[in-house]
Write a protein that binds this DNA or RNA. Sequence first.
DNA 1: ATTATATGCCTAGGCACGCTAGGTATATAA
DNA 2: TTATATACCTAGCGTGCCTAGGCATATAAT
Lengths: 115, 115
Amino acid sequence: MTGPDKELLRGTLELIVLSIIARQRSYGYSIINTIKQQTKGGIELKEGSLYPVLYRLEDAGAIESVWYHPEGRGVPRKYYRITLEGKKRLAQLRKEWHDYVRLVTALIEGGSKDG
Amino acid sequence: MTGPDKELLRGTLELIVLSIIARQRSYGYSIINTIKQQTKGGIELKEGSLYPVLYRLEDAGAIESVWYHPEGRGVPRKYYRITLEGKKRLAQLRKEWHDYVRLVTALIEGGSKDG
DNA sequence: ATTATATGCCTAGGCACGCTAGGTATATAA
DNA sequence: TTATATACCTAGCGTGCCTAGGCATATAAT
């Protein structure tokens, strides 16, 4: 991705992807573009980052996939949708994210007493 | 650390440590306890995580160290203080953090359209 | 015809960084 | 002399995002 420190993405990518799929079932290529558009280019996810995340989420039972073969001709897409288990996981990840943001934001505030 | 997903700490640890030192010059063992206390146990940083961060920050010129040898007897401490360069870096990291929080928080909001 | 670009999925290997699990040394309390 | 607290250091591990490719289909440009 571009923009913020690459390390920041760690630990939040699963949350982001699960959120996108929770809103509407989608497929890899589209998820990347959705994230890019909704962050106005702030997060440009790479395929090499996304697909492993999708496989981890599917292995964990958080999402399910179905192949879509367009009528006549076209490139097949692998659609993912969130499961009940995934919704629980999403709620948990959202909570962890908000808790962590609160912790860090509080920690890094405050003026210097000396240099 | 304990509490949130370990991966969340990545990319924020440098920011956290620099913030602590910016408020008041400090040393490794104390920084760990400060973070633990100020987050009420939410973040329990390990020595194996902190010391490499301190060396990276010092190599980058963001902090400076001086050994403190207590009078008579006692365990010597290595005190760190932030440099001018470090203050600039801290401002930049704070901005990146707030920007990223805004991006992610906006991305993960919104109800589901389907399952 | 051939090249380029967009769509769409997949994967091996690299690298960064927090953690594990040790080590050393001083000081105090049991 | 054993345990705990203080205080610093480090080799190696695991994880996960990225690099840099590969494959295939479809359309537009040269």
